[in-house]
């Protein structure tokens, strides 16, 4: 035949008759991809720098503490597990602010969200899976230094049951706090699609507001108006974390610790914020999808 056929078409189209994963497996694939992306894995080399730099900075003090405990044989850790998170909350906040847009702004800004939602995964499952990836990334980020501390403490011969109890308390608090932080930063990132705005918004919510709350609590304590300080603690995820840690005797002290009904209020607000922000995230994605 005189007509020339293109090289690229020679093999012809092949159909796919193989197995197809169910929704749960697809969601798991999306979850793992999201978790990897939060640390820059599977993305460009440049995008690995910030998350690993922050992770290094956050874990380094724990390694130093372990070294000190081992060298001079202390009989307790100089810093508690929950207290360690409070001390490094700036780094955790920066990590959340910088990485939430990776999981929430990108799909919306480039509109690839439409391609996801034209596939089997329902929109709410997609939103929840993304949120779970971010929550897990924050858990990994905050738990790694705690594990370093824990392993170091055990190697230094500290009491196993004391250490384990303290660690489990810290983990329980982190489970709550990371869901709140992931909900807040995820929602901010899904609304302000420009990465810069999302980061600034998250920093305001996670760094500026807690700073103001701490100042208010310090003044309230000095002025003897403890209730004002306790109420102010409801306004930021970190003051909720510290307040609950103090009330639970997890090795953290705050200016105005909540007690009695306030503890319930702290817990309720944390759960409510996590639930409301996550629900808002789902709504936001579904709205974008229908446009």
């Amino acid at each position: 035949m005189a007509e020339r056929t293109g090289v690229i078409h020679d093999l012809g189209y092949r159909r796919y008759d193989g197995p197809r994963d169910g929704t749960a497996t697809i969601a798991r694939t999306l979850y793992v991809t999201g978790l990897r992306h939060a640390f820059g894995l599977g993305r460009s080399g440049k995008s690995k720098i910030l998350p690993f730099l922050l992770l290094g900075l956050c874990t380094l003090p724990a390694a130093i503490v372990v070294g000190v405990v081992t060298l001079i044989s202390l009989d307790e850790l100089p810093i508690g597990y929950a207290s360690y998170t409070t001390q490094t909350q700036l780094l955790v906040s920066l990590f959340a602010a910088a990485q939430a847009p990776v999981l929430f702004s990108r799909d919306l800004r480039h509109r690839s969200i439409v391609l996801y939602l034209a596939r089997p995964l329902p929109a709410p499952v997609f939103a929840l899976t993304r949120w779970l990836s971010l929550t897990s990334a924050l858990l990994v980020f905050t738990l790694l230094p705690q594990l370093v501390l824990y392993v170091g403490a055990l190697l230094a011969g500290l009491d196993v049951s004391d250490q384990t109890t303290a660690l489990l308390k810290a983990v329980a608090l982190l489970l709550l706090t990371t869901t709140v932080v992931a909900g807040i930063t995820g929602l901010i990132s899904s609304v302000s699609l420009r990465r810069g705005f999302a980061i600034v918004g998250s920093i305001v919510a996670l760094v500026v507001v807690p700073g103001v709350v701490t100042a208010v609590q310090a003044i309230a304590q000095a002025e003897g108006a403890d209730d004002v300080g306790v109420a102010a603690g409801l306004a930021s995820p970190w003051s909720l974390h510290s307040g609950l840690a103090d009330a639970w005797d997890a090795g953290v002290t705050v200016f105005t610790p909540p007690s009695g009904g306030w503890v319930v209020a702290y817990l309720a607000v944390a759960v409510l914020v996590a639930a409301v922000t996550t629900a808002a995230l789902v709504r936001r994605l579904m709205k974008v999808a229908s446009r």
């Binding site: 796919y16 193989g18 197995p19 197809r20 994963d21 169910g22 497996t25 697809i26 694939t29 999306l30 991809t33 993305r43 460009s44 990108r106 799909d107 480039h110 509109r111 690839s112 439409v114 391609l115 996801y116 596939r119 089997p120 995964l121």
Partner: peptide
């Protein structure tokens, strides 16, 4: 609807997995 920082190959593979292919 394409993210600019991903290669076409990586993106299409990811989308295939989102459709349930191994």
């Amino acid at each position: 609807c394409l993210p600019p920082d991903v290669s076409a190959s990586d993106f299409v593979v990811h989308m295939a997995r989102m459709s349930g292919l191994g």
